[in-house]
Amino acid sequence: MTLSATVDMLKTGIWESFYMTALSSLFAYVIGLPLGVVLVVTDTDGIYPIPWLQKILGVVINLLRSVPFLILLFIALPLSKYVIGTRIGSPAIIIPLTIAAAPYIARVVESSFRELDAGVIEAAQSMGASTWQIIWKVLLPESRPSLLLGAALAITTILSYSAMAGFTGGGGLGAIAINYGYYRYEPFLMWVSVILLVVMVQVIQEIGTRWSKKSDKRIR
C-alpha cells in the first residue's frame, strides 16, 4: 500500500470515527438528557415525585447498562437494518451505540443534577416557580459546568465503544486497528490508529474541561 493510500485510509478512518461518535452522542443525549431529568425530578425527594416511574426507569437503565457492548452490538444490528436499511458499515453502528450510550448518559446527567444545592431549588419554589421553570431555569443552567464535564466523559466513552465497530464491518480508526493489527499483523498501522484515537480522546476531554471551566461563574 502506498503512503498516500495509507494516509487517505487513515483520513477516512478519522472522519468515520468522528461522525459515528458525534451522531451517536447527539442521539444519545436527545434520549439520555431527558431521562436524567426524569430520574431526578420524579425521585421521592424530587420536585415532582412519581416514585414508581423513577424505580422502573432506574431498573431499565441498569439493565441496558449491564449488557456488554459487544453483545448489544450484535443484538441491535437487526434494528439497524430496519431503521437505516443496513446492518454493516459505519452508519449501522450508530443505532447500537446510541442504545448503549443513552442510559449511560442518563446516569451521568443525573449525577450532575444531584450535585446541585437543594437550597437553590427550594428558593425557586419559594418564588412560585413551576416544575418546568425549575428544570429550564435552574436545574439545567446551574448544572452547566458539570454537564459539560459529563459530556466530555460520555463522548470519549462513546468514541472508544465506536472502535469496536470493526468487528461488525463498521469503519473508523478502531476498525483499522483491528483489521491491520489483529487480522494482518501490521503493528505499525495498528499503533498509528490507536495513537490517533488517543489524540481524539485528549482533544475531546480538553475541550470539555476548558469549556466547563470557562462557563463556570463560581470560579474567579
Binding site: 437550597g119 437553590v120 427550594e122 428558593a123 435552574v138 443552567p141 446551574e142 452547566r144 462557563s215
Partner: peptide, 9 residues
Amino acid sequence: FQQFNLLAQ
C-alpha cells in the same frame, strides 16, 4: 435563607 441560595451561574 441562611445560605442565601443565589443562582451561582
